[in-house]
């Protein structure tokens, strides 16, 4: 009578051991996912800080803008400073205004168009600055699970090949390989979940900020057009 004693292979199951036992493809996937996670969080932190800063800057600018200060004065204080957000839009519009008037603009309608264009450009640039790198979050959020899954599939494939080689279906033989393979999926999800959530939150924040700036641009455009009309009337009189 042949009796078989099946000793469980004492496989290390710590995180580090799981990583170290994995094949190079799985390792690569895991390293990539770790890097993606680090970068994702870097972006999230950076954007969160940037948006908070931008919001504060907008508040401060609106306060000074509506405080009754003359536009010329405001322009002079902001022109030689590095501005962002509404300040940048204001400065670009004022610059265009100044240029046109210093040279003596002929057509007020043309002037209005030019100022609008300049403000649009400034707004677009600001929005770009706000929304930059959010795309990375989106793509990590959607692709990281697949990358992790890829690592898992490769890991399990290797694991099954090892089982076939050892000719034993004991769970203790199968389990470590599957555990290490599943680690890749876990990392993929770990990177993807914050990325997706942060992407949704940050993009809606950016849209809010953009709306605010757009509103300001429209309002300022209206103010400037009133000013142009006044100037034209003044000239005509």
């Amino acid at each position: 009578m042949e009796t078989l004693t099946l000793a469980a292979p004492g496989g290390e199951l710590s995180l580090w051991a799981l990583f170290w036992q994995a094949g190079w493809v799985v390792k690569l996937v895991m390293i990539g996912l770790l890097a993606a996670s680090i970068w994702t969080w870097a972006i999230i932190i950076d954007k969160a800080l940037a948006y908070a800063r931008a919001r504060r800057a907008l508040d401060r600018f609106e306060e000074t803008f509506w405080s009754g200060q003359s536009l010329e004065e405001l322009y002079r204080t902001l022109a030689d400073r590095k501005t962002s957000g509404m300040g940048a839009i204001f400065v670009s519009a004022m610059r265009e205004w100044k240029k046109s008037f210093e040279k003596g603009a002929r057509s007020p309608i043309q002037l209005q168009t030019r100022i609008d264009k300049a403000m649009d450009l400034a707004l677009t640039r600001e929005m770009e600055k706000l929304e930059g790198r959010l795309g990375f979050l989106a793509s990590i959020g959607s692709s990281a699970p697949f990358i992790g899954l890829f690592g898992t599939v490769v890991g399990i494939m290797t694991s099954f090949q090892a089982i076939a080689g050892s000719k034993s279906t004991n769970l203790a033989v199968v389990a470590p390989g599957i555990a290490e393979a599943l680690l890749a999926t876990a990392m993929g999800l770990l990177a993807a979940i914050p990325a997706v959530i942060a992407y949704n939150k940050l993009s809606s924040d950016a849209a809010k900020l953009g709306n605010r700036m757009e509103g300001f641009a429209d309002e300022f455009s209206a103010i400037l057009s009133r000013q142009i009309d006044e100037k034209v009337l003044h000239k005509a009189a």
């Binding site: 996670s37 680090i38 994702t40 969080w41």
Partner: peptide, 19 residues
């Protein structure tokens, strides 16, 4: 820069804790 540093530090800390 701040974001990247904070993220890296947090990841290293988390991984270390996990280990």
């Amino acid at each position: 820069k701040t974001g990247l540093t904070v993220s890296t530090v947090a990841h290293v800390a988390l991984l270390g804790f996990g280990l």
